[in-house]
Amino acid sequence: MREIKFRCWDRFKQRWSNYKINDGTVYFMDKNTGVWYGSYNKRYKDFNLMQCAGLNDKNDREIYEGDILSDGNNKKPYKVIFENGSFRAEFEGDFEEYSFDLIDVVVQGCEVVGNIYENPELMEERIND
Rank of each mutant, 00 (worst) to 15 (best):
V26C: 11
D60P: 15
D104M: 06
G66L: 01
L102M: 10
V26L: 12
N22W: 14
W36Q: 05
R61N: 09
S39Y: 10
K42Y: 11
E65Y: 03
E65F: 00
F6P: 04
V105R: 03
N41K: 10
D23I: 09
K79C: 01
D129C: 07
G54W: 01
R15V: 03
V107S: 13
S86H: 07
D10I: 01
Y117P: 00
D129I: 02
I116A: 03
R126C: 13
E92C: 10
E3N: 12
Y64N: 02
W36F: 13
A89L: 06
Y27T: 07
V112D: 00
K45M: 14
F100M: 09
Y19K: 04
F28H: 00
E3Q: 12
L49P: 00
M50C: 14
T25L: 15
W16C: 01
G114E: 01
G114L: 02
K20W: 00
N74R: 09
D129H: 06
S17P: 04
D94P: 15
C110F: 04
N41G: 09
N18C: 12
R2A: 05
G109M: 08
E3R: 12
E65N: 06
N56M: 11
E125P: 02
I127G: 10
E3P: 14
E111N: 07
E121I: 07
V107Q: 13
G38Q: 09
M29E: 00
E62Q: 10
R88N: 04
D104P: 04
E125S: 10
N119K: 14
L49V: 03
Y64C: 03
G85L: 02
N115M: 00
D57N: 07
F91A: 02
N18V: 12
K76L: 14
S17L: 06
T33K: 02
C8M: 03
Q14I: 07
I4D: 13
G109L: 08
D10K: 02
D94Q: 13
Y40D: 15
V80P: 11
N84V: 10
V107C: 13
D10S: 04
N18H: 14
Y78T: 03
S17V: 02
D30F: 11
I21C: 11
I81R: 13
Q108P: 15
K58G: 13
C110L: 09
F47C: 03
K79M: 05
V80T: 06
L102Y: 07
C8N: 01
I4N: 11
V80A: 06
L55D: 06
V26N: 08
P77Q: 07
V112S: 05
F95D: 11
R43N: 13
Y44C: 09
K20I: 08
M123Y: 05
I4C: 12
D129N: 10
L69H: 04
K31L: 11
K58A: 11
K31I: 09
G38I: 08
I4P: 14
Y78W: 09
R126W: 12
G85A: 05
G34Y: 02
V35F: 12
P77L: 10
K45N: 15
E83T: 07
I63V: 09
F91N: 01
S70E: 14
G54I: 06
P120A: 01
L49G: 04
D30T: 08
I4R: 12
Q51V: 14
